[in-house]
Design a protein around this nucleic acid. Structure first.
Lengths: 229, 229, 229, 229
DNA sequence: ACGTGCGGGACGCCCCGTTTGT
DNA sequence: ACAAACGGGGCGTCCCGCACGT
C-alpha cells in the first residue's frame, strides 16, 4: 500500500545512497538535520525488514556511518527513534500515496482505483508487506505510545478516504446509500488483508487478485449513470 | 478467528495452570508427553504476546517450571520449538474452529456465519489479534521453514472453506456463479484485515462491524430460494 | 610416535567401523565388554582430536550409537573415561610400538632405529601429533589423577628404552660411557619436540628431518666395532 | 623458555595487580589502551593455565574488573582475543627472551647458552610449560588463523637463532660444517621436548638435565680454537 | 549545539556433564 | 541399560550512558 508505487521505494533508496556517498566525500561536517534524516531512513528500512524489536541499532549505525553517540543525541532511545519513524517516515508515505491524490481529486472513485491499481508487485514489497501494518501488528499491543501514533496514521488514512467519498456523494458521483466511513474501513481492511495473504504465500498473484476484487467493488460504489473507469 | 471462542482460550490457560499446580505438588515425575505439551502451550502464549523473535525461552521456562535441559531435550532449538507451535498448536486451533465444523456441515453458509459470529471480542483477543496472522507477518519474510509451515495452515484453511462452498454449490444451496477458491480467499483476507484494524485501534467495535459486513456478504452467496440465516 | 605405523591407526579405524557396522546389524545385544571397548575407542578418537576438556560426550555417543546411560554405567564420569583412555588405549599403543619390539630385541639400537623410522607421516598424524603428549600437555597441570596415569606411561616408555640400552651395553653393542636413562630421556624429548614442531608447522618435512637426526644420533651410540645399521 | 626468567612472569603479575588496584582507586577514567592491555594480560594468563578452548571470558572479566561491553568493544570475539594474545603477548615474550639478546650479540653461542641457562625452574613455570607450545599443540590442528599466527612466532624464533649462528660462522666463532637452520630447529625441538617432559613429570630436575644437555651441545658448535663458555 | 569513544551490564540461546525414575 | 530431566555456564549481542572534544 505504501509500497504502492515503485518510484517511492526507489526514491528512498536512491536518496539514502546519495546521502551516504556525500557523507563519505565531505567528511563529517556538522549537519544535524541531515544526520537525523539519514538515521530515520535507515531506521525505517531496518524496522521494515526485521520488525522494531528485532531491529538492531548497530545495523542502522553500520548502514549510515553515524556513531552511537550521534544517534542518542538526536533520538534519546530506540523507542523514540521508532516513534519518529512512524510519525515522519510512515505517515509521510501514507500522505503521499493516498491523501494528497484524494485531496485534489474531483472523481474520488477514479482516484482510489488509480491508487490501488498502482500497488507495487515487486518481489521485495510482496515479501515484506505493508510497513504500517507490520509495525502496528507488532507494536500496538505492546506499547501505548507506539499505538497512539500508529492509530493516528490509520485514522488519517481512513478519514481521507471517507471524506473523499462524501465529497463524491455531494456531487452525485458516489451512491448516496453508502456509509462513507464504513466503506473506507472496508477498503483498508480488505487491502491490508490481501497484502498479508500475499506476503505469507509469497505470491504476487494473490495480491493481484485482491486488487482486482477491490477495484470491482470500488466501481460498484458509483452512481449508475456515472462514467465507468 | 482462532480466537473465535472464548472457551478455547480459557481452556488453554486453565489447562496450563492446572498442570503447573499439579507439577508443583507431585514433584517431577517423568511424563515426557505432558512436559512437551506444557512447553508448547507456554511457548504459544509467549510467542502470541511477544512475537517469535522477541519471545524469551527463559520466560517460557519460568512460566512452566520446566528446566532448560528438558526444553533442550524436547526441542533442539528455539526455532524447532517455534515450528512445533505452528504445526501443533496453531494448526490445531484452526482445525477446531474452522475445518471440523465445516466438514460435518450440510449448510456451509450457515456454518460459516456461525463461525464468524463466534468471533471472540474479549479484550485480550482484540489486543493481540490472530496468532496465525501475527506469526506469518513476522516470520514469513525471514525464515523459509516457518513460512512453509504457516503457508500450509493458511492453505488448509482456505481449502476447507472452498470445498465446503463447492459442496454447497453441488446441492444447490450456494450460487453457482461463484469461484469457491476466490471466495474463500476473500473471506480470509477480509476477516484478517478487520482483525488487524481492530487490533490497531484496540477497539472491539471495529471487529464487530467487520463481522457484520462479512456475514452480510456470506448471506449474499446463497441461492435466492434458499432459506435465510 | 604412537602413530608410528599406519597399521596402528588403520587398525583403530577399521576396528571401529566394523564394530559400528556390527552393532547396526545385530541390534543391541547385551555385550558389556564390547560396549566398553567401543566407547573407549571413540573416546580416544574424540579426545585425540579435540583435547579432553573440549571433547564432547555427545559426540562420542553419536559416533557409537551408545546411550548416555550406558556410558555412565561403564564409566562413572567423563574423568573416569579419560583415565581409562590413558590406561588402556594410550598405554597399549605405547607398549605395542615401543616396548614389545624392544623386549624381544637382541640389537636395541637397530630396533630403536626401526621404530623411529616407522614413524607415520600421514597428514592426519602430522596434524594431530602425539596423543600421549597432547593429553599430557593439556591435563597434567590440571588434574593429578590424569597426571599420575600419564606419567606412568612416560615412565614405562623411558624405562623400556633405558633397559634395552643397558642390555646392549652388557653385551657390548652399546657404548659403555653412556647414561642409559639420560639417553632414553633425550630420545623421547627430541622425538616429542620434533613431533610438536611438525604439528605446528603442519609440515611432514620437519618431522622427517627430526627422524633423520635422531637416527644419526642413535647410530652414534653404537660401539665403534659394532655393525652399522 | 618464554618462562625463562622469573622476572618476566613476576613483572606481568605485579603489573596487573598494580593496575587493578589503581583502577579501584581512581574510578574508571577512559583509558582504552590500558584496558586493552589489562585484558590481554589476563587473557594470556587464563589461556596459559586452562588452554584456549577451556579459557572462560567470564574468568578473565572477573580477574580484571572489566565488563563484557568493554571486552566486546576491544575484541570482537574470543577468537580475536586469542589471536591478539598470540601476536602481542606471546610474540613479545619470545622477542624479549630470544631475539633481542641475539641481535645485539657478538658471540651467539655464549648468548644462547645464557638464554638457555636463564630458564625458569619456578614450580608454576614447570607446571604449565611453554605458553607458545601449549597453544600451538592445542589450536594448530583446529584453527587455521591461530596456526598462521603461531607459526609466525615459531618461524621468527627459528630464524633469529639461525641467523645468529650464521653471523657466528661468518666471524669464525661457529663451526662452518653446520646447517644453521637445522641446528636452530634442533635446539627448539629439544628445548620444547624437555619442557614437555618436565611438565608431565612435574619435576624441575628433568628440565635441568635437559638444559645441561643442550648447553653441552651448544658448546660443541664452537670452532675448536674459540674460547669456552 | 553536535558528535564521539569507551565502557556497562543484562539477557539471549545453546550445550554440557550428570542424575533420576523405570 | 535408557529416556527424561537438571541446572550451570559458555559466548555473543544488545540498548544504553558517561566524559570528553569541537
Amino acid at each position: 500500500m505504501f509500497l504502492t508505487t515503485r518510484q517511492q521505494a526507489s526514491y528512498i533508496l536512491v536518496g539514502m545512497q546519495r546521502r551516504i556517498a556525500a557523507r563519505a566525500e565531505t567528511a563529517r561536517l556538522h549537519d544535524p538535520e541531515r544526520t537525523r534524516q539519514v538515521l530515520l531512513q535507515a531506521a525505517f528500512r531496518e524496522v521494515y525488514r526485521s520488525g522494531f524489536q528485532s531491529a538492531s541499532l548497530d545495523t542502522i549505525l553500520a548502514a549510515t556511518g553515524v556513531t552511537k553517540g550521534a544517534l542518542y543525541y538526536h533520538f534519546g532511545s530506540k523507542e523514540v527513534l521508532g516513534h519518529a519513524v512512524v510519525e515522519e517516515v510512515i505517515a509521510d508515505i501514507t500522505r503521499e500515496k493516498w491523501l494528497r491524490p484524494l485531496q485534489n481529486s474531483t472523481d474520488p472513485i477514479a482516484t482510489l482505483i488509480a491508487i490501488v491499481r498502482g500497488t507495487s508487485f515487486r518481489a521485495e514489497d510482496i515479501r515484506y508487506g505493508c510497513p504500517l501494518n507490520n509495525l502496528a501488528q507488532e507494536m500496538s499491543p505492546l506499547d501505548k505510545d507506539f499505538r497512539k501514533r500508529l492509530a493516528k496514521v490509520f485514522d488519517d488514512w481512513q478519514e481521507g478516504v471517507a471524506s473523499a467519498l462524501m465529497r463524491g456523494q455531494a456531487v452525485g458521483m458516489v451512491r448516496r446509500d453508502l456509509n462513507a466511513g464504513q466503506a473506507a474501513s472496508f477498503l483498508i481492511a480488505t487491502y491490508e488483508g490481501y497484502t498479508s495473504l500475499a506476503k505469507n504465500a509469497q505470491d504476487a498473484n494473490v495480491l493481484k487478485l485482491g486488487v482486482k476484487n477491490i477495484i470491482g467493488w470500488l466501481r460498484s460504489l458509483r452512481t449508475t449513470n456515472a462514467a465507468s473507469n
